[in-house]
Each structure stands twice: as C-alpha cells, then as structure tokens.
C-alpha cells in the first residue's frame, strides 16, 4: 500500500485499466502532450500513444459525442472535461444522448462511457470555473454518478467506472487533487453503488461527498474535543443513491447534517433529507440540516469566496446547534 495524492491515484487507475483492456482510451482537452490541466493524465500519452490518449479541440460537444459513438461501437472511452462548468456546452450529449440512448433504443445498445470532471471552488476562479453540479446529473435516469473523497476510493471507483457498461459521471474536485492517502496496489475495486461510514459516532450523523467529506472528517475530529461523537457517512455513490448506511446511522444518532459544495436548493442534501424523512422520520429528533454554498455565482474576491463556500466551522456550528450545545 502506497501513499498517493488523489491525482496520482486516478492516474494509476487509468494506467492499470489501459494496460488491462485495449479498448480503453482517453480523450479530452490537453490531456496528452500537455499532461492534463490537473496532471491526472500525466505520462499516459507517452506510454500509450496518441491513438489511446487523444488530444481534442476545445469543443466539448464533440468530445462527449465522440465518446458516446465510440462506446456504442465497442470501445471504452474515458472523457475528461477540464471542469464540470464546461460540460454545460455538451449537456445535450450527456443527457439527451448518453443517458437516454440505451432505453430509447430498447436496450439495443449500451454506452460504456466515463466522463471525469472536477467541480469545486476555493481557488478564486470566479463564477464560470468554481461550481459543483453533481445533483444535475444525479437527477437523470440512465446516468451513474459518483464523487469519491479519498485517493483509495478515487482509484477503486474509477476502475469500476471504466468496467461498467453504463455512462458514469465521475466527479472529482479541484481542491482534492493534492490530498494524500493510502492506496492499495494493483487490483482495487470499489463498487459504484455503495456508500459507507468513514468514521463511527453516536451523537450526530454527517453526510458528505467529495471535498466536503474531508471537511466533515475534520469537523468530526474537532467536535470530538467538545465531547460530541459524530458519525460521518461518505456519500460517494450519488446515483444510484445508496441510502442504507445513512438510514442506519440516523436510527442510531437521530440527527442528520448534509454537507455539499454546491448550492443547497434542489441539491444532494435535499434528496438525502427527503429519503430520510420517508424511511426514518420517526427516528429523527430534529429537522435535517443542509449545508451548502451561498446561493450566489462564485465571487472572485478571496474573502467573499471564503464565506460563499462551506467549511469546517459551518459544520461544527450546525452540529452544536442541532444538539443544543451552542
């Protein structure tokens, strides 16, 4: 087991899958000669050549469209969108095509496609480079959506996503690429439909995915100092949404906070809260609290940006309020 940064864990997954299966190829903007905007694809063009690591024009619709057609024709493409904000240009291909093709053609074909793309703010990149939109995709039947928050899960879920026969939105986060963690060597597969408890606790449940998982874990460590035992559930599998560990946890703690980096309205937390109300209402001692980004386009100014995105302090304050310990 090696300690790897998230970007290197992803790189390892891509390299291993490309070695294992000739039909796996990568395409995207500056992923080859330039080694990738966030260096996730570093060295891969050199190792596998230009056919299997395809540098594309800056034209998102053709990237996704090409990936879909290649997937329908026997290949396993992994497309990179430089940031999730850019995918808006290709939403027709993602939703109307990738997600719907199998069903609308009566199961006559499949679309084994992975779209890797980072969301997330905090780097003063302003309103068109900073948002998180995993809820948009998680709304759509036909897509699978995952958002790992640890290097080990990043590797294991990417490998599973590449082997899956469906279009998978693989949501990364610009703020986690340098985060390090232990990563199992070689064959390490994490299922795309299983959420899990990352930290056990008794007093309150905190649900989070991607970078917010790290924020939630840090908050739980702080809360422990104040005598509050928080259980953290990693919501890495967003569609299909595995609610079992959340429901089980809420039955124990009776209190739930959801944390996401995107806007709260119609968000991941809204969905989780609804399902908890449906499945474990009688166990709750307080309304579910949702934490998310301020409902503004991401501001550039450093101080404004800091308050626009959720952080550890928000989780701590909310947890204490929910427990009446402020």
């Amino acid at each position: 087991m090696a300690v790897l940064a998230m970007r290197d864990a992803l790189n390892q997954a891509l390299r291993e899958e490309m070695k294992r299966d000739e039909s796996v190829f990568l395409l995207g903007e500056d992923i080859g000669l330039y080694d990738g905007s966030f260096k996730v694809t570093r060295g891969l063009m050199k190792e596998f050549g230009e056919k299997r690591v395809l540098d594309t024009p800056i034209a998102e619709e053709i990237i996704i469209g090409t990936a879909i057609g290649a997937a329908m024709s026997g290949l396993r493409p992994v497309a990179e969108m430089m940031t999730v904000n850019f995918i808006m240009v290709a939403m027709d291909q993602v939703v109307n095509a990738a997600a719907h093709i199998r069903y609308m053609f009566g199961g006559g074909t499949k679309v084994p496609l992975v779209i890797r793309t980072p969301g997330g703010g905090g780097h003063q990149l302003g309103a068109q480079h900073s948002h998180s939109h995993e809820n948009w995709f998680a709304h759509v039947p036909g897509l699978k959506v995952v958002a790992p928050g640890t290097p080990a899960d990043a590797k294991g879920m990417l490998k599973s996503a590449i082997r899956d026969d469906n279009p998978v939105m693989f949501i990364e986060n610009e703020g986690t690429y340098a985060v390090k963690g232990e990563v199992p060597d070689g064959e390490h597969l994490v299922p795309l439909d299983k959420n899990e408890v990352k930290r056990a606790g008794d007093d309150i449940t905190i649900c989070a995915h991607s970078r917010m998982l790290i924020v939630a874990m840090d908050a739980a460590t702080e809360l422990e100092k104040d005598g509050i035992s928080a259980e953290v559930v990693d919501m890495r599998a967003l569609r299909p949404l595995d609610m079992a560990p959340v429901v089980e946890s809420v039955k124990k703690t009776s209190r739930l906070i959801t944390v996401e980096e995107g806007w709260r309205s119609y968000g991941v937390g809204s969905e989780i809260a609804s399902r908890v109300y449906e499945e474990a209402f009688d166990y709750l001692d307080a309304p579910v609290a949702r934490i998310g980004a301020a409902e503004v386009p991401a501001p550039y100014n450093k101080r404004l940006e800091k308050i626009a995105f959720p952080g550890k302090a928000d989780v701590i304050v909310t947890a204490k309020a929910l427990l009446g310990k402020n």
Partner: peptide, 11 residues
Amino acid sequence: LPIACGSGYAI
C-alpha cells in the same frame, strides 16, 4: 453528428 464521429474513431 458528433456521435457518428465516435463510430468513425472506433473504426
């Protein structure tokens, strides 16, 4: 049209 390009790439 972009999807057709994908079949072309696969060929």
